[in-house]
Amino acid sequence: MPIIKHTLFFILLLSVILLLGGCWNKRELNELAIVTAVGVDKSDELVEISVQIVNPSQVASNKATSFQVPVFTYHAKGKSLFDAIRKLTTLTPRKPYYAHAQIIIIGEEMAKEGMNSILDLFQRDAEGRSEFNIIVTQESTAQEILSVLTPLEDVPASKMFKSLKVSEAAWGTTESVILDDLVQSLGGIDHSAVLPSIQILGDADIGKSISNIEKIESPVQLQYGGMAVFKNYKLIGFLTEQESRDYNFLNNHIKSTFENIACPEQGKISTEIINSSTKVTGHFQNDSPSITIQLDIDQNIAEVGCHLDLTKPETIDALNKETSRQIKESLERTLHTIQQTYQADILKFSEVLHREDYHAWNRIKKDWPTLYPELIVRIKVDVHTKGIGTATKLKLN
């Protein structure tokens, strides 16, 4: 009996050992090149990939030296993106490791051609992640963007990532878009989406030099611009900075921003938007669709540049109405651009109407491309002032 127990125990132990995979596919850190950002450009009839790779000896604070750059960039071309990625290994001393990439930058010309193959490859890549942010270049290439050295942040990819988050939270003209969100958005009825855009301020060639981060004011900087508009997987244009902020208002993505309101006589008032809530509803009347957008906005008085007594309720009431009017007019202008100029349903009105009445939607969906540009959209804006500060009576000198 004890022999049988020992035999069974041995068989069980052997089975467990066989089931354990261990680290059969492990790779040591010193065998890898850590990629922080990836760029994809169109180069004639080829696809060009650029990777930004960390220089470990320089980024480590206790080993940093003054004569080395914090990152290196490598570039390779191929007939396809996968081909270019494989050819990249002929240049890099270590195998590129993409799991820590924060940013993927799509060159403007590549984006105009279409992003189907790019998204397909990154979705299928088992080594990659779906949490990285996707950005489009404006008036430059992805290679040029990745070659610019940035102050404060040793790794330029970290600078781009943090600037995107900060501007999204405090200004409202950008929006973080990760791979999964982009694929889902482009998979909608008219395959439309938006992505943040980035551009170079200054001479791109100077931005490659270490001198760009050795001066009090960097001569070359990276700056986020207006949102890039996509339809059918292709870039069709860019929203302006104001239009991008309006888009985020309409899409309920404003966390904080500000408004400049003209005073009744002269001067301006600056207000800080501290909260914005947007509700979008769809309606059908005899199979004729329409959309209603209700915005409820809270603001604080930030700066007063005219004669005003903020202790009077009528002053605050007038300020609320003027802010509401100004925001509403700007939103209507931007909506007209989105519907008429780009004819891209980036605000996903089709999904709102489908949720409202899917039977009615099924009857009109085949005509949506012609219905959308003329779709009636009613915008309502209610602004409420919550704080006026401690100085309630301010006058110009």
Rank of each mutant, 00 (worst) to 15 (best):
F10S: 10
I11A: 09
I11T: 07
L13V: 08
L14C: 10
L14W: 10
S15V: 00
V16E: 05
L18W: 07
L18F: 08
G21P: 02
G22C: 00
C23V: 00
W24R: 00
E28K: 11
L32A: 05
A33M: 11
I34Y: 10
T36Q: 14
A37V: 08
V38Y: 01
V38T: 12
V38W: 03
D41P: 05
D41Y: 08
K42F: 02
S43Y: 02
D44K: 03
E45M: 04
L46I: 03
L46E: 05
S50A: 05
Q52I: 04
I53N: 01
I53M: 01
V54E: 09
P56A: 11
Q58V: 09
Q58H: 08
Q58F: 08
V59F: 08
A60M: 08
S61G: 06
N62Q: 12
K63V: 05
K63Y: 03
A64P: 05
T65W: 00
T65M: 00
Q68H: 09
Q68R: 10
P70T: 07
Y74Q: 04
H75T: 11
K77I: 06
K79F: 02
S80R: 06
L81N: 03
F82H: 03
F82S: 09
A84K: 10
A84D: 04
I85A: 12
I85E: 07
I85K: 13
R86C: 07
L88A: 08
L91N: 13
T92H: 06
P93V: 15
P93T: 15
R94M: 11
R94N: 15
P96C: 15
P96A: 15
Y97T: 13
A99V: 15
A99L: 14
A99Y: 12
A99M: 13
H100V: 13
H100W: 09
A101N: 15
Q102R: 14
Q102S: 14
I103G: 06
